[in-house]
């Protein structure tokens, strides 16, 4: 499958995707940087200093990994959903569909764009975090692996959303009504140990809880949940969403008549 023709096609899609979001950096890189800075100022510095510690860690240190992860999730999702839907809406997805590119390459290309934006925004937010707290990395491989897999999962989810979307409203429904509540209830700002037992059980159904905690473990060595379960869930979601996205592309759902 990976002959030179295919690799050039993949390189072209990834290059195009990266140049798309960097060309419009005022819409893609700047807003998360500003909003995450505000999170650090308000929740970290102003309110955080009065909250004290969370699981023995200062509040700003506790929320920093969650805020970084939140920006990675939002941006990897947003990149693919808007890019793929935009390509559908303006019909230039047809440029790829008429070319001899296997669907799996189109899929990997768009997901790579989401990964790139997730990593870039995550890096920028990490730099911002350094102005407010001394970030240390407990395990570099775990941190990078969690970022990679989480960004992949949400890029795939964004792609599936874009495949089904018929109008612009359809690409904002999931981020607003599903993604945002799951992120906020996913242990970004609090430890689930603080919740009553019933809500702890309910929180365990939220996949983002595992991702945020796995990332927090990578950075702080501290997590509400078992790291192995977090990786298992990440692998499971990656495999399932990848398969669904590929099946949909092969069927031509939303892109072919």
């Amino acid at each position: 499958m990976l002959d030179q023709t295919t690799l050039i096609a993949l390189y072209t899609i990834v290059r195009k995707e990266i140049s798309r979001f960097t060309r419009i950096w005022i819409q893609t890189i700047l807003p998360p940087t500003i909003s995450m800075t505000l999170y650090f100022v308000i929740f970290g510095n102003l309110i955080g200093s009065r909250i004290g510690t969370m699981n023995g860690i200062s509040y700003i240190d506790f929320i920093a990994p969650g805020i970084i992860m939140m920006s990675i999730i939002n941006n990897s999702y947003a990149n693919v959903v808007s890019s793929f839907f935009g390509a559908k809406f303006q019909h230039h997805i047809e440029e790829m569909l008429v070319a001899p590119i296997p669907n799996i390459v189109i899929l990997i290309g768009f997901v790579s764009g989401g990964l790139a934006r997730g990593f870039l925004v995550g890096a920028v937010v990490t730099v911002v975090a350094l102005f407010f707290t001394d970030l240390k990395i407990h395990s570099f491989p775990i941190t990078v692996a969690v970022v990679f897999m989480t960004a992949t999962v949400f890029s795939l989810a964004g792609l599936i959303n874009a495949i089904f979307a018929r109008k612009f409203d359809d690409i904002s429904i999931i981020p607003t009504f599903v993604l945002t509540p799951l992120i906020y209830l996913g242990g970004v700002f609090y430890s689930i140990d603080m919740l009553p037992e019933f809500w702890q059980t309910v929180s365990a159904l939220n996949p983002i809880l595992y991702m945020v905690n796995a990332f927090r473990y990578g950075m702080l060595g501290e997590s509400d949940i078992n790291i192995s379960s977090a990786f298992l869930i990440l692998v499971l979601f990656t495999v399932v969403l990848f398969s669904i996205a590929l099946i949909l592309l092969n069927k031509g759902t939303g892109i072919k008549h």
Binding site: A9, T12, R15, E94
Partner: peptide, 23 residues
Amino acid sequence: NFSQFETPLDIVVNQGGYYGIKR
């Protein structure tokens, strides 16, 4: 059916890339 935000040069060169033509 091309992106209105890209330049004609990019549009044509990218299409070549999709067909496996070296940049």
